[in-house]
Design a binder for these strands. Structure first.
Length: 152
DNA sequence: GCCAACGTTGGC
DNA sequence: GCCAACGTTGGC
């Protein structure tokens, strides 16, 4: 089993939205970055664990846990001109973009903030903390996953 | 293939 | 709202 971190803006779709969703699941549509696409299409497996991270908000940080409920499949929102994430370059016969489904597991007892994560040397090589990192999907080392959970 | 222009991300 | 960092686009 592998571990991941996925970013979402709470004003768009936060951890509470995931918890309130039907069957506590959602389709992770709209990722339009090739690195993130590759991970969702090729590497994320059903049952993998996911840190749910709130970005672009007052207190950025890890707020909850989710899991991969469905492995990579074509992001059909790219095919529909009415969709916000429409991409005329994605052909249904040869999809450019992929997504996974996530299932809510639980909220953390408290937000483990970005600022706090930066204070822990064992986490210093996390992708999340690297300068200029903008990936919305990234792997987390299992040791770092465990370490972060001890901070809760 | 180079690189300037542009758009987006996301912390602050 | 600002702006640094980065990815993408497109002219050449």
């Amino acid at each position: 089993m592998a571990f991941w971190l996925m970013k979402s803006e709470p004003s768009v779709f936060g951890i509470d939205d995931l918890r309130a969703a039907k069957a506590k699941r959602t389709e992770w549509e709209g990722v339009r970055n090739y690195q993130a696409r590759n991970m969702m299409r090729d590497d994320m497996k059903k049952g993998d664990r996911v840190f749910y991270y709130h970005s672009n908000c007052d207190v950025p940080g890890i707020v909850g846990l989710a899991e991969v409920a469905k492995e990579g499949y074509p992001d059909y929102t790219a095919f529909d001109p009415k969709e916000k994430y429409y991409d005329p370059g994605s052909d249904p016969q040869n999809p450019r973009w992929y997504m996974v489904d996530l299932r809510y597991k639980r909220k953390l007892k408290r937000t483990i903030t970005l600022t706090e994560l930066r204070d822990h040397r064992p986490l210093s090589n996390m992708k999340l903390l690297q300068k200029g990192n903008r990936l919305s999907v990234m792997p987390v080392a299992s040791k770092q996953w465990d370490y972060i959970l001890t901070l809760e």
